[in-house]
Amino acid sequence: MTLPTFKYNPDPISLHVIKKEQTTCPVCEKEREYVYHGPFYTVEDVEGICPWCIKDGSAAKKYNGVFQDDASCDDVDEEKYIDELIYRTPGYRGWQQEYWLSHCGDFCAIVQYVGWKEIEHLEEELTEDIEDICSGGGLTKENLKQWLVNGGYLQGYLFQCVYCNKHRLYIDAS
């Protein structure tokens, strides 16, 4: 069976939140070959959710949970975008609290976990985000370039606008 596609997380396998692994989904109770290993905010301890139950919203509904905290998101133009992100999109693994960026009035798609070497070719495109990160975090641009290492103390998360393809950058520290 083909994996469902997610507008805001187009490659959850490369982000290690969906893995090829046998599971009996606690939502649909079907045997599945893929399982979700990302954040899911609910009062119950739930494991083994399949991607199909994320996509159709049944996992969030059954457990009254969300895959992304709506307080940890940029503003968007339509409520339907928030619903799709928090109820029907696999999250990503952040060091601290995951944050979802937006552009063109809608959420961006998470592309990959990054350090400076993975994004240095995008420096000009990411100038505004880099300046915001440096001014808000007390970093110089040179410190950011040195300390932003994939899997290191400063972790980067690269997003891309689903309309104009502009890249955006979010970072957090371990």
Results as ranks from 00 to 15, higher is better:
K62C: 08
G105V: 14
T2F: 13
P39I: 06
A109K: 06
G115S: 02
G156A: 01
E123A: 05
Q160E: 05
G65Y: 15
Y87N: 02
I13Y: 06
D45F: 14
G48D: 06
E29D: 08
E124D: 14
H37L: 06
R32V: 09
Y157T: 05
W100Q: 10
E47D: 14
P26W: 08
Y8S: 01
L126N: 09
P10T: 14
K141A: 00
I18V: 15
P90T: 05
G137H: 15
D132E: 15
N165Y: 11
K141Q: 09
K30W: 07
D106A: 10
S72E: 15
Y92K: 01
Y113C: 03
W147G: 01
K20F: 11
R93W: 04
Y8N: 05
D74C: 09
Y87D: 02
Q68R: 12
L122R: 08
Q68W: 07
R32H: 06
K7S: 05
N150G: 11
K166H: 13
C134W: 05
F107C: 06
P39N: 15
L169F: 13
I18F: 12
I54Y: 10
D129Q: 10
R168E: 06
S135H: 06
V66H: 00
D75Y: 14
K166I: 08
Y87G: 00
E33F: 07
E44F: 14
F6W: 05
Y157W: 08
Q68F: 11
D69V: 04
I133K: 07
P51V: 02
V35N: 01
F6T: 03
